[in-house]
Design a protein around this nucleic acid. Structure first.
Lengths: 141, 141
DNA sequence: CGTTAATTGATCGCACACGATACATTCACG
DNA sequence: CGTGAATGTATCGTGTGCGATCAATTAACG
């Protein structure tokens, strides 16, 4: 059962992150969203949704909790007030410095070589793309 | 970011299962639990938890929902009344026949060869084991 | 210019998942 | 035997995720 191996490994990964993220006051999905903003700041909700493959019904409360922590700011786009722009606050930017060591700790725990890690990541990305493409076909056909 | 690739692929897998599980009236975690019972019937909650890596606070409502659907039966062990034994009902056993085609459909969607699928599964199992082992060490140390 | 269609977020309800805790049952020890 | 520790399950609160739906804003069309 590949499906269970994937489900199980994802849970194990989330639990491995937990002790590292707790001191930062972040949950795992919150960390992923912050990571997206650390790569590129000032994105709209739709843009973040496209990257994380999450809908507004998941993102809206997620973003609101990060706002409540003072890590990000939410404001409407002046040009198109339908769009919500999400930006890092000074605290949110500062947290990046503390968070940089997190992925290194995880990489150590996985015990994977650089090559193995890169290959696994590529395999998973391809798998995800295939599964989503199959889903799209089905919706069309 | 391996962590996101894993997170994302697991979500894609869950979404790929959805259209196949909807006709069966099962969610993805419910399907995984049923699969465990289809492999070995009449297990205690703790045994199921060890296989799925889930706690009682997740399993109890999950099992109750499957009981509400009439797929399983919950009853206390006669010898040790602390333990809850979970058994398939006739309907639960019958559902197995309808569910056998599900993993084949998914395997087709992944586009993975037998060898690639086996290797990926092994890699994920090893990764899960490493991450959980690292977590145990930390708890001890 | 005004009505309609499309886009964007937000809201609601349901189902996990987990930490912390409570409770009942059984076991171990004196 | 009786009492406290250990075991097994259930409950509570928080935080995702998603389907369905709604409101607000903008764009498109006659």
């Amino acid at each position: 059962m590949l499906c269970f191996a994937l489900y199980d490994a994802a849970h194990a990964m989330q639990q491995a992150y937990k002790p590292l993220l707790d001191p930062l006051g972040l949950t795992y999905p919150q960390y992923l969203l912050m990571s997206a903003l650390w790569v590129r700041d000032d994105q709209t909700l739709t843009e973040l949704g496209r990257q994380l493959h999450l809908e507004s019904n998941t993102l809206t409360p997620l973003v609101k909790r990060l706002e409540a922590k003072g890590l990000i700011a939410r404001e409407r786009d002046r040009a198109d007030e339908r769009q919500l722009r999400v930006r890092l606050t000074r605290e949110g930017q500062a947290l990046h410095a503390e968070a940089v060591r997190v992925p290194r700790c995880i990489r150590a725990e996985t015990g994977l070589s650089d090559a193995a890690l890169t290959e696994l990541r590529a395999t998973l990305q391809a798998l995800q793309a295939r599964l989503r493409a199959a889903g799209m076909d089905e919706a069309v056909g």
